[in-house]
């Protein structure tokens, strides 16, 4: 009786390890591949887009963690992005606090606010939760505008200093790219480890079936609040990077529209698909550049493409790669 037991569990564990190793190797390959971006980017503008890609990757992957993996709808991610930006920015401008303190502070403030809001809000489900988070985004936008003495109000927060490392400024596009990409890599590694762990599987079970999860002894409320806090915390990290890169923060950047757009990017990349966030972030950065020449037709074309993608790839564009990968594996097995 004991031998087959051991055999079965060892088989499962090695399959899990293989899967984890494969994901880690792919993440490392993508991360290393991006290191050449400063060498191939034709100018500083394109190079800066690489930095913004890293920032939006954090933002979209963290929203995907909450919505795609844990199944909780949030229309407040833009607000947490803003809260992180203002936390780090205000600390630097008003209290002369180093961005290195501002960055973890942004994570903490967003996580704490998400916890306080999440405890009552996450008792709600589906559309009701979406409405509650929408309300949160509206409140935050009002605060960003009205707390003029802190945020600068509609005129924005100006004079936010950039990051420095050992006295060397990271304001230079190349230096900031490497910095942003390091933080994005660490966040993506943390998310990968989380979703492939036992708590990660518990999160996925929430998305599938909250009652089923509760019947197995998973503390559904605790998990929902914790993942909401982590997701908001990472959005805060993205906000901190953003404000110290731009040296400026404006309430418009963190409006309800941005929250909706982030949800769309998660869907375009692929709900609950780890690699989907890379595609979502790429579209978020590239689409405005590609459609810029279309002027008034920009929004129309963007909407049309969104509808087509949702119609033909309901699991997101990453499903194209998944299908190709599946076909390759089948061919290898057939050999």
């Amino acid at each position: 009786m004991n031998a087959p037991v051991k055999h079965a569990s060892v088989q499962d564990r090695s399959a899990l390890k293989r899967e984890r190793r494969r994901s880690l190797m792919l993440l490392a390959a993508i991360w290393l591949g991006f290191l050449v971006w400063p060498a191939i980017a034709p100018n500083n503008y394109i190079l800066a887009l690489g930095s913004f890609f890293g920032i939006y990757l954090i933002l979209i992957a963290s929203l995907n963690l909450l919505m795609g993996f844990a199944g909780q709808i949030s229309l407040a991610h833009g607000a947490f992005f803003g809260l992180g930006a203002y936390t780090s920015g205000v600390l630097a401008v008003k209290a002369d606090v180093s961005p290195w303190i501002g960055l973890p502070s942004a994570f903490l403030v967003c996580a704490v606010v998400a916890t306080l809001v999440g405890v009552p809000a996450l008792r709600l489900k589906g559309h009701y939760l979406a409405m509650a988070t929408l309300g949160l985004n509206a409140i935050m936008t009002v605060l960003f505008n009205e707390l003029v003495f802190l945020t600068g109000g509609p005129n924005g927060l100006i004079g936010v200093p950039g990051f420095t490392l050992f006295g060397v400024s990271l304001a230079n596009e190349t230096a900031f790219f490497y910095f942003a990409w390091t933080i994005a890599g660490l966040v993506m590694l943390a998310i990968l480890n989380l979703i492939q762990s036992r708590p990660g599987r518990a999160l996925r079970s929430l998305a599938g079936n909250e009652i089923g999860a509760a019947c197995l002894g998973i503390n559904v409320t605790a998990y929902k609040v914790v993942v909401f806090a982590i997701s908001a915390g990472f959005a805060g990290v993205a906000g901190s990077l953003y404000v110290h890169k731009n040296n400026f923060a404006s309430p418009e950047t963190f409006s309800f529209f941005i929250s909706v757009l982030l949800v769309v990017m998660v869907a375009l990349g692929g709900w609950g698909r780890y690699w989907g966030a890379f595609i979502g972030a790429a579209i978020y950065v590239a689409a405005p550049e590609v459609f810029r020449t279309l002027e008034d037709m920009e929004l129309f074309m963007f909407g049309l493409i969104m509808i087509l993608v949702m119609l033909f790839f309901p699991s997101g564009l990453v499903s194209l790669f998944e299908r190709a990968g599946g076909a390759l594996r089948r061919r290898e097995r057939a050999r």
Binding site: R204, G208, A213, L216, I218
Partner: peptide, 19 residues
């Protein structure tokens, strides 16, 4: 039944022993 549809049978069983 409320099984976790996207998860494998093995993962569903593992979730049963979560605690």
């Amino acid at each position: 039944r409320r099984v976790f549809a996207p998860m494998s049978v093995a993962e569903n069983l593992e979730m049963g022993a979560y605690q």
